[in-house]
Design a protein around this nucleic acid. Structure first.
Lengths: 133, 133
DNA sequence: GTAGTCACTTTCCTCTAGGTACCTACTATA
DNA sequence: TATAGTAGGTACCTAGAGGAAAGTGACTAC
């Protein structure tokens, strides 16, 4: 594990942070692959590694491990290791992670209400809206 | 899958597409550099290209243009070109983009309430919480 | 005549996140 | 004997996002 993970976003968006108080949250909660993971744990409860791996298609075990470690480090996910054979590891949302629920709900609500607006805007732009300048 | 009645959760559990309804929103609103841009326009109103460029430090004009085009295409930002000399272009949040305000507010609120929890969790993890397994 | 402003565009280049593939230890099952 | 299953670790490599720097065109101010 040494030194490959665990320094993902702190520097990458340090400067946007000055202009935008939500950037740190975006780095923590909405960086790549983390939202499906958090949503999966939020929606379906405690799950094992392979369950997550199968549910979130196209994610590789390496990246899933990285993201879970990062989320565990940030205190949003709790990892429980059972030293059995075969080994069993369970992941679940932490109490801190659960405070994200209203956020997720509101985002899902916005999606339901406005995603087709975005889709329509894209079609309109692609048909006629080339920028003049 | 064929002709069974009333399996509400079963589809959501097995279908990876349904695994995370917030991912599309994340792609549109919270992809790299877009949140500072949206926040800047949301917080300081209509702005010219250079104003954004100066406010969002470290962003290059190339990337700023890319992101603004993308946001314009998604209908979240409105671009107004004034054919003067020197040219003047103004960007502002669209009506659709304004529907994101409560979302931004809630994220900022979550940040104020919980960002130090994350920070503490990180310190704790780095000190003692190496994963066992 | 030269420098500066604006809103980009273009070209070139670097960096790294993520993908591929293979590896571990241990047991149950066939 | 061999294979499958679990939870990853590790080494290598690629694609593509993003950074750096220069150019553009039309005009103005010095």
């Amino acid at each position: 594990m040494a030194g490959e993970t665990s320094r993902p976003a702190a520097d990458a968006t340090t400067d946007p942070e000055l202009a935008c108080p939500i950037s740190p949250v975006v780095d923590i909660v909405f960086s790549r692959w983390t939202s499906p993971i958090l949503w999966s744990l939020h929606a379906f409860g405690r799950q094992r590694f392979v369950e997550l791996e199968r549910r979130i298609e196209k994610i590789t075990p390496k990246v899933l491990t990285q993201r879970l470690r990062q989320l565990e480090r940030d205190g949003l996910v709790v990892r429980t290791y059972h030293p059995e054979v075969p080994p069993r590891v369970e992941y679940e949302i932490s109490e801190l992670g659960r405070t994200l629920s209203p956020l997720f709900a509101q985002i899902a609500e916005w999606a339901a209400a406005n995603l087709d607006h975005v889709e329509r805007a894209r079609r309109h732009y692609d048909e006629a809206g080339a920028p003049r300048g």
